[in-house]
């Protein structure tokens, strides 16, 4: 995983709660056998509506790198393709009042930052997008802050170990294999309980 670097990016508003991973990346794109190239399938059914009103179809949001949404973002299927699609499209962070557990884990493994803010702070962001064209936010992971150029700032919590992995770009598997002795000892004490 690459190290997470602080950045400033255009914010796209997705004003819905419970955005499920079936919407983020519909089933037909799950037949991929590689992680790359899924951006074209991102929110496919919503983008292909005849009215072309979906947020990512609007020219002013086309180059956004931050998505802001309502509660329980990423619920449903465990498909990591949802995270791969968001990242491949160009998103580097999603801001919401809450995330589904599996989606949140998947995001952290891929350097896509799930930022949890309070509902009223989310309301502020939605309002600011309406007020300002090309509304941008700066995300500073080390300081755990989200800020705009007009002086508004919010603090977010993140699990310290996940933060460290993101900042240092750590490979999980290598980290675990450093515990080979403990794993081998556990296995010795706990043999398989199957009849083969």
């Amino acid at each position: 995983m690459e190290r997470f670097k602080n950045f400033t990016g255009l914010v796209a508003p997705l004003d819905r709660p419970n955005v499920d991973t079936d919407q983020i990346i519909p089933k037909q794109f799950l037949k991929a056998v590689v992680r790359s190239g899924l951006g074209g399938g991102l929110f496919y059914d919503w983008r292909k509506q005849p009215d072309r009103q979906f947020v990512l179809e609007q020219p002013r949001f086309r180059n956004s790198t931050i998505l802001v949404a309502r509660a329980n973002f990423g619920c449903g299927s465990s498909r990591e393709h949802a995270v791969w699609a968001l990242a491949d499209y160009g998103f580097r962070a999603v801001i919401a009042p809450s995330f589904a557990d599996i989606f949140s884990n998947n995001s952290l493994k891929n350097g896509l930052l799930p930022v949890i803010l309070k509902s009223d702070e989310i309301d502020t962001i939605f309002a600011a997008i309406k007020e300002h064209d090309a509304y941008q936010l700066t995300i500073d992971l080390a300081r755990q802050s989200v800020a705009d150029e007009y002086g508004w700032e919010a603090h977010f919590e993140i699990e310290p170990f996940a933060k460290k992995c993101l900042l240092e770009g750590l490979d999980d598997v290598a980290l675990t294999l450093a515990h080979e002795q403990e794993i081998a000892a556990y296995e010795k004490a706990h043999p398989v309980s199957y009849r083969f």
């Binding site: 465990s78 884990n105 998947n106 294999l177 794993i183």
Partner: peptide
């Protein structure tokens, strides 16, 4: 419990999960 593909790879390699 369900896991994502990165975690699938992790379990295949280590039989463990953080």
């Amino acid at each position: 419990f369900g896991i994502g593909t990165s975690e699938v790879e992790h379990v295949l390699a280590t039989q463990c999960l953080w």
